[in-house]
Design a protein around this nucleic acid. Sequence first.
DNA 1: GATTATATTGACGTTAACGTCAACGTAATC
DNA 2: GATTACGTTGACGTTAACGTCAATATAATC
Lengths: 128, 128
Amino acid sequence: MSKSYSISDLAAEFDISTRTIRFYEEKGLLSPRRVGTAREYASAERVKLMLILRGKRLGFSLEQSRDIIDLYDPAAGNMKQLQLLLDRIGEKQAELLQKRKEINSMLADLKQAKENCEKAQEAIANKR
Amino acid sequence: MSKSYSISDLAAEFDISTRTIRFYEEKGLLSPRRVGTAREYASAERVKLMLILRGKRLGFSLEQSRDIIDLYDPAAGNMKQLQLLLDRIGEKQAELLQKRKEINSMLADLKQAKENCEKAQEAIANKR
DNA sequence: GATTATATTGACGTTAACGTCAACGTAATC
DNA sequence: GATTACGTTGACGTTAACGTCAATATAATC
């Protein structure tokens, strides 16, 4: 019994609009089942949506997120497809490692700024 | 003798257009000196540009990047300003730590996908 | 069965982040 | 001094990622 979700369920859970969810489908990122005319999302689709939103927060475009989702595609048939997939996984990993590096740089910068700030505070305090 | 740069120097170095650099200025992110009518960028301005571009790669908007740049502002006069600055630095740090977490999740996911992929490869290889 | 809630498609609007193009100025070079 | 290189300011165009609104359908509720 895997759960299923309505479009407004997901919209509420992730605090986005239904329009946004339909837009992702329009762009080929989601493909919910249809119950009559209404959309029904399996938990796999919900995971995809999570991946999209996480990607967004990290500065990936929708197209890049679609590529990332495709990396989890189980339909990788033959040997050549698998190797291509592995290559692209490797590329994405490198990209993410780079981002992590830059985040670490940014954190180091902020730490420095913080220290300077605190020194300035002490300087003011000592003037009293 | 701190170096200075023309707009096309920076454009070439960071592989962006001069229009982009002027656009950042228009949005209040850069403020180069003027030599006659032409713009001249000190190394501090160059650093700002680097911060903007790094921010972009990490999913920050230009407005967010401007906020981040302001965190390095040395013009924090009194005690209250300093405390506000420290608070905002703390917020940005938290935000970055969250991003790093998400990157780590993504890396873990990709690692999993890679292993599955390699298993599938071996399965095919053993069929021969 | 009338209302209310939730869904659909389609069309047009909007914002951020630039690109592109025109018209013009200035500085160095041949 | 004509050309070439590089700069400037508008002004309008473009793309991604949605928002907004209208008209309509379906499902649940009173």
